[in-house]
Design a protein around this nucleic acid. Sequence first.
DNA 1: GTCGCCAATCGTCGATAGACGATAAATGTG
DNA 2: CACATTTATCGTCTATCGACGATTGGCGAC
Lengths: 107, 107
Amino acid sequence: MQDSDTEIADRAKALAHPARLRILRLLLATPGCIGGDIVEAVGLAQSTVSEHLRILKAAGVITGEISGPRTCYALNPAALEPLAEFIGTLTAPSAAVCCMPDEKELS
Amino acid sequence: MQDSDTEIADRAKALAHPARLRILRLLLATPGCIGGDIVEAVGLAQSTVSEHLRILKAAGVITGEISGPRTCYALNPAALEPLAEFIGTLTAPSAAVCCMPDEKELS
DNA sequence: GTCGCCAATCGTCGATAGACGATAAATGTG
DNA sequence: CACATTTATCGTCTATCGACGATTGGCGAC
């Protein structure tokens, strides 16, 4: 159980910044790929946004694949499952697991 | 929506450390109050543990009330609801909310 | 009243995060 | 081939985090 603590903490750390939350919301609201639009949406420097994207990608929360001259970012919600499960454990001490994942991640 | 980003980020930051996750698990597993036992359970210095407790309390994730010579800490799951809701939004883009809390927290 | 225990706070240190500008790499276009 | 565009990376600076020892404060015991 202790081994997963680091993993969960890393996931939580990825969410522990307003700019990254904004980016995730933006990715959620955007159907397809999205590139430099993120920069002006969050109002930070391009290098800063790129750094946040790198952190999110390192945490596995998003995936980025190069498509031509730009990079396509997409959400990877499966990475947040351990964190969601942990929070669920805390918020629902009586009901063990309220919802099981219907798809197994095979990264 | 942007105003809640800071709040969610703070909650996530409270979870973004293995030691704090351990403390939360310990509080979850311990029915009643718990005091200095946390110190030896996490294996850190007393001042360090106290600092983590302060951070968790500042984030609203736990509550601490003085009961005699020791302090009684308890979980406050309601503080994590915004974060859980945000994660739920990401993990289930198609199904809005997968599970509603069957009990309302009245801290 | 004095002592001992437990928790909180203070001060300090090293490590890390976050922001930025500047620069480099990759790719499609003329 | 040269150019423009887009993204990633580098270097630097400041701010914050995390850990610790030492000290202080509160409260019960004696």
